[in-house]
Write a protein that binds this DNA or RNA. Sequence first.
RNA 1: GACCCGUUCGUCUAUCGGUUAGGACUCCAGGUUUUCAUCCUGGCAAGAAGGGUUCGACUCCCUUACGGGUCGCCA
Length: 448
Amino acid sequence: MDSGISGAYTTRMTVRTRFAPSPTGYLHVGGARTALFNWLFARKHGGVFVLRIEDTDEARNTDDAKQAIFDGMEWLGMDWDEGPGKGGNFGPYFQSERKPIYDAWFQKLVDAGRVYEDGGAWRFRFERKPVTMNDLVCGEVTIDYTDESNTPDMVVKRSDGSYVFHFVNVVDDLEMEITHVIRGEDHLMNTPKHLQLIEAFGCKPPFYAHIPLILNPDGTKMSKRDAGAAVGDYPRQGFLPGAVVNFIALLGWNPKTDEEIFTLGELVERFSLENVNRAPARFDFEKCKWVNQQHLIPMGVEDFAVAARPFVEEAGLPIPENYTAVIAAVKEKVRLLGEVPAAVDFLLKDAFDYDGEAIAKVRGNAAAKDLLASLAESFATLADWSADAAKTALNDVAKAAGAKPGQLMFPLRVALSGRAHGPDLGDILDLLGEERCTERVRKFSQIL
RNA sequence: GACCCGUUCGUCUAUCGGUUAGGACUCCAGGUUUUCAUCCUGGCAAGAAGGGUUCGACUCCCUUACGGGUCGCCA
C-alpha cells in the first residue's frame, strides 16, 4: 500500500503529522496513543510533528485544561516541532485564534455555491455519490452519500457565527500542510465528510490512518472516569514515562518480533503504520505494570533512588544518610515506584506490623522461637557487625541446635521485616545494623 | 434502527492456504537462590458459529452471532 512516503511521485514530500486535542482538562490514554503514533511516524520519517489545540469550545477552554495536555505530552517525551511555545510558519496553533482564516475558507465555499443557509446556520451541500477513502490501516472503505436521509448536509457554520469541528479540522490540516492524519477510529465515518470538503476546496487530501480504539479491561469503551484513562495519573502511581509509552505503543501495534520492551528511540526505529492492527485492544494493567518493571530493572541505583524519592517523602518516611543503599535493596522487587515506600518502610522506621501469614509460617517451625532467642543473644555479643558476621552467627546458632541454617533464615527475615517477602537478607542485615537487628530478633522471639 | 470497522489462549499478539497454531502478561508446578526477588524449565489456555471455494483454510468468499464505532448548530 502506498503510505505516501515511498512512492516515486512523493519522494520529496516532507511528512507532517499533527496531534489536535481539545482541552478537556486532562490527557486521555487514547489521545496519548494517537499522539504517539503521529509522533513516531513523524520522527521515523524525519518529518514534522505539529501540536494544535482545538479550543473552540469556550466553556472548557481553560489554562489548566491546556496545561494538562502540555504536561502529559512532555512527561511522555513527545516534543512538538510546531505549536504552542514553539511557534512555526503555520500558526496560530490555537483554533480560537484562527477565526480570520476560517472566514476566508468559508468564503470559498460561498463563492463555489456549496453552502446554503438553514435556520441561521450554514450547511455544506454534499455531492450525492459514493465516497471512497483509502485508509492506511483500514484499507479501502466506501460510504454511500447517495442516500440523503443517511447523510444529511452538514452544518459547517453555526448560527452564532462559529465553525464546527469538521470545518476547522479540515481547514487547519490543509493550511498546516498536514500530510498524514493519524487519528482514532471514531473518526472513520467523518472522513468522507472531510474528503468532500477538501474536494470542494479543490485541494489534495492528506493520507488517513484510523487506528483502533483502546477499551477498558472489560471491553467497554474507555472514557473519562475509567481507571487508567488519565495520563496524569501515571506519574503519581510511579510509572515511568518510557514504560507507559512502550505499553500503549503495543496496544494496536506490534513490531512483528517477540521483543516487547523498547525505548522511545527503538520505537521510532521500528514503527510503521503497516503493523497497526484493526481491532480495538483492551487495557491490561497487570501487563502495563510488568512493562514498567522491565524499564525499572535496567536503571542505575542512583537514578532509581532519585526517581523513588518523591514517593518515599510523600509517604512521610525519613530520608537517612544511606538512602540510596536502602532504595537499591528493593530496586528489583517493585513494579511501580509507588510500591517503594511500603517495600522499605521497615528499613526506615522501627514501628511496623507483622504479617499474619508470615508469623503463622514461622510458628509452624516449633524450634524457631528458641533459635531466634539465642540468635538475639549471639547478635548482641558480636564484636564487629556485618551481614557476613551475622550470618556466621546464624550458622553457629543453627548448628548448635542441630538445625539447618536455612531453617533460620526465613524466621529471621520475618523478625527483621515483619513479612515474608522483601530485600535480600544480607542487605537487610547490613542496612539495619547490629542494634536494630538484635532488638527486633529479641522482640520477635518473645511474641512468637 | 441504518451505515462502517472488527472477531486467534482470560488479556496483548504472531501467522501474509500446508505449522505439533508461536511469543508475552496473569496463574500453577518444579529448579536456582543457605532467605526474598531476579532468573531458568515445564504446565494450563485460542482460531465465534455455519456454509462454501480448494488436494488442503485460522488465513479467501457468503451468512449469522457478538464486540466496537458513527449517525449533533460536541470535538
